[in-house]
Design a protein around this nucleic acid. Sequence first.
DNA 1: TAAAAAAGTTAACACCGTTAGCAAAACTAC
DNA 2: GTAGTTTTGCTAACGGTGTTAACTTTTTTA
Lengths: 209, 209
Amino acid sequence: MGVKERKLRQKEEVRCQILTAAWDIVEDEGWNALSMRRIADKIEYSAPIIYGHFENKEALLMEFTRQGHIKLLQLVKEAKERFEDPAQQLEAMWMAYWDFAFENTPYYQLMFGVEMGCCEWKANEIPEVAEGRKVIDGVLQQLIASSKNPDADSCLKFYSLWSVVHGLISINLTRRMYDERAFREDGHGDLNQAILKDAISGIINRIKE
Amino acid sequence: MGVKERKLRQKEEVRCQILTAAWDIVEDEGWNALSMRRIADKIEYSAPIIYGHFENKEALLMEFTRQGHIKLLQLVKEAKERFEDPAQQLEAMWMAYWDFAFENTPYYQLMFGVEMGCCEWKANEIPEVAEGRKVIDGVLQQLIASSKNPDADSCLKFYSLWSVVHGLISINLTRRMYDERAFREDGHGDLNQAILKDAISGIINRIKE
DNA sequence: TAAAAAAGTTAACACCGTTAGCAAAACTAC
DNA sequence: GTAGTTTTGCTAACGGTGTTAACTTTTTTA
């Protein structure tokens, strides 16, 4: 009697509906517009049923955080595989990170608390985070090992790179650039690309010495 | 009959009470705990009177944003005046920016949308923002002019520096560092200082060539 | 002292996340 | 097939949010 299986399938269906409904709202109107009641409206249920699938709103956001990190990791890995040279790999990976932020802005905001509160997670809750760090750090260590200064700290360089990329992304997403003329059109403008490439290649060249 | 003057003084007094009450709440419990009703409770008025002093909550936050930028500008200017050498000035200014972020975290969060939504402002609404940019850019141009590569773009370098500093601050404030051991104690740890100094001096040295 | 203006109140609206209690449907066992 | 049990989903409610309207009280003016 596959009644249990069917019920499980149905429940999974509703869970999926909740997530897609939520995502539709967020993509259309941003995180501020997302509420339990609006999700319920969209899937034609009453609000409390959501709590049968997610403990609370935080848990729902956590699921999206997870999704975001999985997607980001995949893109970063793909970027790496397009090259053999560690320096090229590194640049491609951070460019992939950059592109992810602007092609999946709601994800990025949630994952890194840009213009919104983001949920806290323990280290083991999203293994993709640690894996992403390891992938980048591996390339970084390769680059350092073959450089003229093989004792450099990969951790230091990692955070330098991450900071400059995340910082520039944040500044763009909050639209807090000082020189508005230069950034007028969109967040992918030439000046941004120039800054990014200059900063990244600057750090990479300093590693290679 | 100085009744109008007295009334104006009293109104100003209440406005001030609102601001300090709000700030007390934010410092104690963070931005999420700030609500119009809680402010009203604290100043022993009913909530609607706040709307006689600020058009809405956004306007109240705007006032704090302004305050933050004024304070930040002052600290950056003071840092500059402690040195003569442009390179030293630059480093000191960004260190002042860094210190400001951790000694006035609520301000910083509000001003730059870290872990919360920040209010939008037009360029002329907070003149201190443009002035701060000009102060830093001036030093940057001095440094570039006396370098071996005097055609470098100061705008590019400004955003590189700002991005790396703001990025590292954001990462610290959202506690999203990958390597938790290294950041265990506080946000001013040794690793942070190392990353910051390495990144900043890296960019500065690359300017000087 | 009466009229006008100002100040401050309460109550309400439309939301929010979340929980308790209840009705209806679905399934199980006889 | 029906009785009893479980599951499902609902409405209503609680305590909170920002904000506005209407009313009352105080203060100032004439």
